[in-house]
Design a protein around this nucleic acid. Structure first.
Lengths: 111, 111
DNA sequence: AAATTACTTAAGTATCCACTTGACAATCTC
DNA sequence: GAGATTGTCAAGTGGATACTTAAGTAATTT
């Protein structure tokens, strides 16, 4: 119900904020509650909740409320989006270097 | 002279902006001039220059001016920072899953 | 059932930041 | 050297957004 498709845009925007990255870092230690996440950060609980909203909409984090405590966990699919984007850039960059040799060897090749 | 240490903070902040990501995407096709980079984006040249400043300070892009044209190229070290950060999260996450089995097998272990 | 815990929501504020305009500088072309 | 090209710099503006406070809800504890 609350799971959004992790778009490159949303994921990178979410990770652009240091507090949000800190949350993801903490969550990679394991699932934990909102107040537990808030402890090391010196911002209010309310602020953390807002960050969690962004993180959840980006698909980086998944949360579930049982009783009065909301438990947050990392959602690997979100990080996968980042890895793929970076990987795509890198592979284009490497492909270019490969073809560089071709161009120098055969300057007049029709594709 | 203009090369900064690519910090996680700067790199993620830089990639948080869609225009800047578009620039990096374009640059992975190969080095090109500022005005050439500006073409597909519908923002002014001045804006592109500002984005390039951020990208260069983050270590994602390297530029060099010869004559009146500044040529921009991708700097792989910047992307490497992202890859490592994501990799670190992922490995922590995986390590946790490994130890999960241990905890279930030996519930009474002193740290 | 009163108090405590663990959030949630709304509204306001202040800072940041992407972008523009406009004036300028350097280089190249004719 | 006149004009065009390519980029640079400074200052300003508008909108996004990270954060706070304050009030409220729901679950647990005593």
């Amino acid at each position: 119900m609350s799971r959004k498709k992790p778009s490159v845009d949303r994921v990178f925007h979410a990770l652009g904020d240091p507090s949000r990255r800190a949350i993801v870092e903490k969550l990679s230690e394991g699932p934990m509650s909102v107040s537990r996440l808030a402890e090391p950060l010196n911002i209010t609980l309310a602020a953390v909740v807002q960050h969690l909203q962004v993180l959840e909409e980006s698909g980086l984090v998944q949360t579930e409320k049982v009783g009065r405590v909301r438990t947050c966990r990392i959602e690997p699919a979100g990080l996968a989006v980042v890895e793929q984007w970076v990987g795509d850039r890198r592979s284009m960059w490497e492909r270019r270097l490969d073809h560089l040799g071709d161009l120098l060897a055969e300057p007049d090749e029709s594709d």
